[in-house]
Amino acid sequence: MITVDEKKMEWHQGITIRELLNRLEHTQFCAAVRLNGKLISTPAFETTKIPDNAVIYLLPLIAGG
């Protein structure tokens, strides 16, 4: 299991951030997530694998300084 925005979700071996976002609704404006506290941005979504028991938060649309 993984926790995404404080909701439990099924996990499977090899799932990437991109696959996770594809499973969720309304994620087209997500450009960064926190995976176990670490920032992961769009260019790494395809290649970043999510470990089991991960805690993930989807960051809001990046809005600049």
């Binding site: 925005d5 404080e6 960064a32 941005s41 769009t42 260019p43 809001p60 600049g64 300084g65």
Partner: peptide, 21 residues
Amino acid sequence: PKQNRMALVGTTHLVPIMNDH
């Protein structure tokens, strides 16, 4: 605390995000 954590890191969270993009 779940999003940009500005109360902890200010706007420095933008550095890695800008760099990645």
